[in-house]
Every structure is written in C-alpha cells, then in structure tokens.
C-alpha cells in the first residue's frame, strides 16, 4: 500500500534518515517489535503445520495472535512517533519558512501527545471495568484485563515519545 515515508532503505544503501538521539533508547521498542513480529509469524506458521500434519488446530492461537498484533501496532507505533514516520500530509508542513515548519512540527507532535494521553486515561477506565466486572476473553476464557491493560501502558509510552519529539523540535537546529 502507500505511505509518504519510505518503508525501508533500498537494499545496499545506507539509511537516509539516521535516528535522532532520544533520551529513552529506541532499542526498547525495536526489540519488542522484532520479537512480536517473529512470534506472529511463528505462531501462524506452526498452526498451519500442526493442522496439516495432525488435523488439529489450536483455537487459542487466534486470540493470542490478535493480541500480539495490537501490541505490535502500539509498540512499533511508538517507535514510529519518535522517528516521525506516521502518515501525514507533508505538503504544507514541510515547505515554506523554517520557523513555520518548526512550529507545525511541534504542533503535530503535541496533537499526537494529546490524543494518546487522552487514550491512556480512557483505556485505563476500560481496564478498570474489565477487572471490576470480571470479564473473560471469548476465545480462551482468561481475564480480559490481561490483554487490555497494555493499552493504557503503551498509550503512555506513545504520548511520551510524542512529547520527546515535541521537545526536540523546539530546540534550535
């Protein structure tokens, strides 16, 4: 599909934008991303193999895979915030006077911070409900908060990354 930012460096060429220095190392998100992607591929592949060799399937893998995909979206999404890779219209924000460009970059980062800070609070409330009413998962039947509790945690991480970007964009180049 299509994204304004290049998905990956062209093979054999160095990365065009080296990562900016961040206070909290991006390696945290990067390693989590790699582990989750690998798990997603391995679980699904194992399911195919097991089904074809034993005509059994693990009904539980679907629930775990969907959970891992949500973790992926939030964790790798957090790194994408720090790298400023999220899809946006660059036409006006990345052209024109430099002061305006910087102001718009800060505004964009702040809006990202605002949304995920709000999402952190709201999803914490949903987790509270999940615990209070003892909700269980439809696939495996485990407490739902085991899955949902990561939403506020990772929303805080994304908000933090957005705040970091906001601060970095405020510095004189």
């Amino acid at each position: 599909m299509s994204l304004p930012e290049l998905p990956d460096p062209i093979p054999g060429e160095p990365e065009v934008h080296p990562d900016e220095v961040t206070r909290v190392p991006l390696a945290i998100e990067d390693w989590l991303t790699v582990v989750v992607m690998a798990l997603l591929a391995l679980i699904t592949f194992a399911n195919v193999l097991v089904r074809y060799f034993t005509s059994q399937s693990f009904a539980w893998t679907e629930e775990i895979s969907v959970f891992l995909m949500i973790v992926l979206a939030l964790v790798a999404g957090s790194a994408a915030v720090a790298r400023n890779r999220h899809i946006r219209i660059e036409f006006f924000a990345d052209n024109g006077p430099e002061a305006r460009q910087r102001a718009l970059a800060r505004f964009g980062a702040f809006m990202m911070f605002l949304f995920f800070a709000v999402l952190a609070v709201l999803s914490a409330r949903v987790v509270y409900d999940d615990i209070r009413f003892g909700e269980t998962s439809p696939g495996i039947g485990v407490p739902v908060w085991w899955y949902t509790m990561w939403m506020p945690v990772m929303s805080v991480a994304i908000a933090g990354r957005a705040l970091g970007l906001f601060i970095r964009r405020g510095r004189r180049p």
Binding site: S55, A59, E62, G139
Partner: peptide
C-alpha cells in the same frame, strides 16, 4: 470449543 473438541471435531473460531 470444548463441546466440539469433545465430539472429536476441530473447532475454529472466526
């Protein structure tokens, strides 16, 4: 899932 497993079938949730 439990019911269909008990019957020897291979339940998938979708």
């Amino acid at each position: 899932s439990d019911t269909f497993n008990a019957l020897g079938a291979n339940p998938t949730q979708m």
